[in-house]
């Protein structure tokens, strides 16, 4: 594993410790796992909103399926985060009882649902990022995380393919779809850079061989998306005047509070109840 791990980001790889314990960096490790888990959870929540609103029934199924994969990843990652934290919080305590400032997902996934082109633009970027991420995390020094990544990488390759096929169809379909797809890409562009920005927990995780530096993923992600846009007769949008930042540190955008209010309200209305 260490040989494989050392191939990415050029950081020192720590071997897994007895019992899978991540050692002194537990709070950094928790923060790192929460970042990955929250991305998956919040995007699953947004995708679930598509059910019964998709352009065709096949797409209700596909978006539901992708949401279900992400939800599965989120559950494993949050469970692992809770174990590493050691404070007795399980997946539901982490999902339902944390406040907005404690969520560590990027802004891209929390944005409100737009039209189908907007969704495919978001999915193309996010799934491309997840493919690069998980394909490296299979070499994580944390065996649990490596196992999660091994299962997830197959899922996100399918998500990326799904988004790719739709970006091609919409980009190279009709005049209307081309315009809407281009507009979708422009709308998500300010949220893309955050995916490739390093943050303290990721720096720690990469140094320990547990995780990956996001900045090392940006190049391959960009190359993949550029290739798709070329084939789809679409243009990579110009660098935006501003870009989203702060998600990894719990600084979110307006839609996040509403998303959590909806997701958490039943669980919070019945403290201590089992479902």
């Amino acid at each position: 594993m260490s040989t494989k791990g050392s191939e990415f980001a050029g950081v020192r790889i720590a071997g897994p410790r007895p019992g899978g314990d991540l050692g002194d960096g537990a709070s950094q490790a928790t923060a790192y796992l929460l970042s990955l888990g929250d991305d998956a959870l919040v995007y699953a929540q947004r995708l679930a909103e598509w059910l019964t609103h998709a352009p065709q029934i096949e797409e209700d199924m596909a978006l539901g399926n992708i949401g279900l994969d992400l939800l599965g990843q989120a559950r494993s990652l949050l469970t692992r985060a809770g174990e590493v934290e050691g404070a007795g919080r399980d997946e539901d305590a982490l999902a339902m009882l944390r406040d907005e400032r404690e969520f560590r997902n990027v802004h891209l996934v929390e944005q409100e649902r737009g039209d189908f082109a907007h969704e495919m633009a978001r999915m193309l970027w996010f799934s491309s990022y997840q493919v690069e991420l998980y394909s490296r995390l299979v070499g994580s020094a944390d065996e649990t995380l490596a196992g999660i990544a091994q299962k997830a990488v197959k899922e996100v390759e399918y998500h990326r393919d799904h988004a790719t096929q739709w970006v091609l169809r919409l980009g190279d379909g009709t005049e209307v779809s081309h315009e809407r797809m281009q507009a979708g890409l422009v709308a998500v562009h300010p949220y893309v850079r955050e995916l490739g920005e390093d943050y303290p927990a990721a720096r720690w995780a990469a140094a320990e061989g547990v995780g990956v530096l996001p900045s090392t993923l940006a190049g391959p992600v960009n190359d993949y998306v550029s290739g798709v846009l070329d084939r789809a007769t679409l243009a990579m949008p110009d660098a935006p005047r501003w870009h989203a930042r702060g998600g990894r540190d719990g600084i979110h955008s307006r839609p996040m509070g509403y998303l959590l209010a909806e997701m958490q309200h039943i669980a919070r209305s019945h403290p201590g109840a089992t479902w």
């Binding site: 679930a48 999902a95 339902m96």
Partner: peptide, 26 residues
Amino acid sequence: WLTRAPSLRRKAILLAKVQDEAGHGL
């Protein structure tokens, strides 16, 4: 109830169920 299911396990089961219904329709 997909966005409000009270636990992640219930959310996953419900999401799979609604997706199955789309499949039955097809």
